[in-house]
Nucleic acid binder design. Structure first.
Lengths: 338, 338
DNA sequence: TTTACCGTTTCAAACGTTTGAAATAATTTG
DNA sequence: CAAATTATTTCAAACGTTTGAAACGGTAAA
């Protein structure tokens, strides 16, 4: 409008008839700069809406001020909400966030990781794909000094890495205890893909709750699936189409899986599917439209998980924490009744 | 690993005992460079995994290679899917995408717009909030030569701007015709927030379909709402709690609104809510879990809308199209039966 | 008057790239 | 064999910022 020459330090310096370095130092509050000069510079900068050129700064500081985020997909509300926590905090600290989806495919994840590495991101936050068992494509980040924070999903074997996880043990413990308190004796457990440890903790929460509640464990009440409907149906068949006494309640590793389960039981006209009380991880807004909504949801506080992940990552980037000093952050879950 | 000095042009030049400019020109296929030299340079670059430093390039080219995207939220699957179209194409062309959510609030949108402008994005793609009536915060982009593409949501009055829209006229026309073909005589129309024109086109599609189908228009069959449940209930009351003959079908500006409608009708035990045939915009994966799913969905092809938006934006950034030569792109909808 | 020492400002190099102009090397021409 | 021409490489400036070192003007001490 007024002028189309870019407002740079040089521009301000010419207006003020002083050198570029004086202007720079004045804006950065160098003590050697005369306070009157500093004031004049700041006024001029404000008047012209000066903003330091990020590319120049990046070049100088050898940083990109970009954080890479890889997650399986954006259709899962957990991830969508966690992004809000990440973006909010990153933006505040002057970082930009690049979000990319692996669609739970290892090949795609590798491609994205390489892409982000080439983009020279300053750090990476990742929820690994369900296929990821090998971590070469992620280890290269740390080798180059780029910190990586694993969030939500975490390799089952003891990998040395920074992680931010939902306290799924506590989540399924509470859910199971709640079901026990409602009088259930036969509570089924439906677990997720075995390759990521998020199954493991949930299962232990269930087991411990049973023990503490004085109910003996029955392996027939446990089945596994993933995000594939067919596998879910198989699992449901294992749990509900047996000779032994049927389960009257269900704890599932993901709430959406319960929807598939109920739909299937309904389709085969399972005699008392309406009475089965289900609780799963997640808190889908959609739930209220269902005729047979789950009894409760385990709210995973995705926003908090996201915020913790970015907070940790920034500490690593700023070397407040050593890259080899591996951290583990747990975020509690909360049982939400409907 | 092998070495921690950064792989730059200078680094390669020293290895090859030639000047930085030769290396640069060889990599950029300058015809003045000897082909043998070029080959040697390229081999060396490959060997050391050379990638040009983006910050340096950005500084030189006076670009950020960042595209800003502002959208109301990520919980709506339309937006989530449209992002995929945007990101995919942008990444391919060497651009990064910053996504931010306005939560349909004008104040937040203004904040984000200013933030992105200060971040020196090369272009902006925006789905305006439902509160946006004034465009100062967006006009400043074009004034500074930063192109803006409005997508999906478009100001109702005739604003000169670049837009990529779903062909909602065609979408609701087809939906209405389909309902007529199934014998419906009283088809209600439930529209959305009036401030954005996306209501307008949909309504016209409905009207024209009625006309072409030989059904006379009845103002009593039209009501408006937004994303607020209470307003939806009011609208449903207007449509379904009257003396005059009840509607037997419904066309809604958003599919999720239908869920609220059905839920309400069910809760008040509306005598024949199960027979009402509904069609809305959107194609929610969730639909299959409902006991009374809509008859059909109007698929808006969000991915294609996103892709068209970023394609147009990049053309504007590269000045293949003049910033003042306003473009309008329409993406057809498709009726999906369930 | 010279020297020393402030407080303040400016110089100059650096970050990694591109690119027109200038310099050099190689080849052809007369 | 010198001159002209062409092919190839290098120089140097620029993009906008930061920052240690050098320079400046002024005052105080010797």
């Amino acid at each position: 409008m007024e002028n189309n020459t870019p407002v740079t330090l040089k521009f301000l310096a010419e207006k003020l008839k002083m050198s570029v370095s004086t202007v720079s130092k004045a804006l950065n509050d160098y003590p050697t700069i005369n306070s009157y000069t500093r004031q004049r510079v700041k006024e001029m900068a404000q008047k012209w809406h000066f903003t330091p050129n990020k590319s120049a700064l990046n070049l100088k500081e050898k940083k990109s001020h970009i954080i890479g985020v890889i997650l399986p997909n954006l259709l899962d509300h957990f991830f969508t909400k966690s992004i809000y926590g990440i973006e909010q905090y990153a933006m505040q600290k002057g970082y930009n966030v690049i979000i990319s989806q692996s669609y739970d495919e290892l090949q795609k994840e590798i491609l994205l990781a390489n892409m982000l590495l080439r983009s020279r991101v300053d750090g990476l936050i990742i929820a690994i794909s369900k296929q990821t068992k090998d971590f070469n494509h992620l280890d290269q980040f740390e080798k180059l000094g780029v910190p990586v924070v694993y969030y939500t999903r975490n390799p089952s074997f003891n990998l040395n890495c920074h992680k931010v996880l939902g306290n799924t043990f506590q989540g399924s413990y509470e859910a199971t205890r709640f079901l026990i308190s409602r009088g259930h004796k036969r509570i089924a457990y439906l677990g997720g893909p075995k390759m990521t440890n998020f199954t493991h903790d949930r299962f232990n929460g269930y087991i411990n709750a049973l023990k503490d509640g004085g109910i003996s464990f029955d392996a027939e009440l446990v089945a596994y699936t993933d995000f594939d409907k067919e596998n879910t149906i198989n699992a449901i068949q294992k749990l509900f189409m047996t000779e032994s006494p049927q389960p009257t309640a269900l704890v599932a590793f993901k709430e959406v899986i319960i929807f598939d389960a109920i739909k299937y039981l309904k389709s085969i006209k399972h005699p008392n599917f309406e009475e089965i009380e289900c609780i799963g991880f997640g808190n889908t807004p959609f739930i209220h439209y269902l005729d047979h909504p789950p009894l409760a949801s385990i709210e995973e506080n995705p926003q908090s998980v996201g915020k913790n992940a970015i907070e940790l990552l920034l500490k690593l980037i700023n070397k407040d924490i050593g890259i080899g000093d591996y951290q583990k952050v747990m975020v509690d879950c909360k049982l939400v009744l409907h």
